[in-house]
């Protein structure tokens, strides 16, 4: 069976750490950086569980700052 894998790229400097993508992700892929902050002092979102990503783009859809890009690949 074909398997769909995905990945997201977060624009760290644009991210405001609102946590909405973390809540929206159905596979618990994303989390806010625990200690690191970007130039503006926000705890940016990052992938903590990249293997689980299915590239559904739910995180990018709800992101108010449009800082997430989503890629999807179907493995045969």
């Amino acid at each position: 069976m074909a398997k769909v894998i995905g990945t997201v790229v977060v624009d760290r400097e644009r991210c405001k750490g609102c946590d909405l993508c973390v809540v929206a992700c159905p596979c618990d892929v994303l989390s806010l950086a625990a200690k690191d902050v970007n130039d503006r002092g926000y705890h940016y979102a990052m992938m903590v569980n990249p293997e689980a990503c299915i590239g559904c783009a739910a995180c990018a859809t709800v992101c108010p700052d449009a800082c997430i890009e989503v890629y999807r690949l179907t493995q045969k």
Binding site: G6, T7, A66, R72, L73
Partner: peptide, 15 residues
């Protein structure tokens, strides 16, 4: 991640 980005398709990006 790099391989997925290279071989996969972009499904969502900034308008």
């Amino acid at each position: 991640q790099d391989e997925i980005i290279k071989q996969g398709t972009k499904v969502y990006s900034r308008p």
